[in-house]
Design a protein around this nucleic acid. Structure first.
Lengths: 135, 135
DNA sequence: GATACGTGGTATCCATTGGAAACCAGCACT
DNA sequence: AGTGCTGGTTTCCAATGGATACCACGTATC
């Protein structure tokens, strides 16, 4: 049976393995497995956007989290931060080539969320009703 | 009670819009924007897996979080939970059709992480070195 | 001159969440 | 009688997240 594998014999023998705790790819998933990062990347698709514009567009994000997320994405080489010494400082964020390669995957996630929302809501309603009738 | 004025006219006027705070699609992103959920879904691709097998395979996940994630995914209609009244209870988790439609997107994310890890590490090293030399 | 505003952020506080470990019930094996 | 395995739940504490206030800077307004 394939189901139960020992921890020391991983399913994949790739150089990088998302299932291994120590693997650096997990750091990437930690980063991407963050709704705000997904939304920021999605918003930067096709656009160059300034800090406060991102804050306005991504409804509900706090400044602290936004600057944190942007800093991390910049460190990862996914986005470019460009500051211009204008009157009040102007800072523009845009996708770097590495980010462009990622946007495909991110985009299909957000698109999936938008298209299958109704199915999920139906399922949740059924689930909750079953729970309540059982009580 | 509406909190405040709308900051600006939103970029998209779709029925479901991930950028809107009140939009249900955000709940989906909250769920998917969770490294553990991504890993669980990825692990269930092509396999029917039992609770403790998932716990073993997904290195580092705690029992509490795993059962929580599984419960949520089941509620969303993405996975199927089947319990058999065997000697010690046997519980099998598998993808439901809705989950199958999602796995493509999830899979490309985890695959992206595995293939572009080296680039990210390079970028992080450069970033940190620049930071340190600036100090 | 003082005041207020807009920019891109930090700093601070506190509620929510996450993880480690302990505990549970039921039964099989020794 | 004690130990182990199953799939969880409970408990406790540290880490994270979000709301809010604050900052420096220059500009416009009073």
């Amino acid at each position: 049976m394939v189901t139960s594998q020992k921890p020391d014999t991983p399913a994949r023998n790739l150089c990088f393995n998302v299932y291994a705790k120590e693997c650096p790819t997990r750091m990437v998933l930690d980063r991407l497995g963050d709704k705000w990062a997904l939304l920021v990347l999605d918003r930067l698709q096709n656009d160059v956007v300034r800090f406060n514009a991102l804050k306005r567009d991504i409804n509900g994000i706090s400044q602290k989290i936004l600057s944190q997320v942007l800093k991390n994405l910049e460190r990862d080489g996914l986005i470019l931060r460009q500051a211009y010494p204008t009157v009040p400082v102007t800072v523009e964020y845009s996708l770097k080539p590495l980010g462009e390669t990622l946007i495909q995957a991110v985009s299909s996630l957000t698109h999936w969320a938008e298209t299958h929302m109704a199915d999920i809501q139906d399922s949740q309603r059924l689930y909750d009703e079953a729970k309540n009738s059982a009580l």
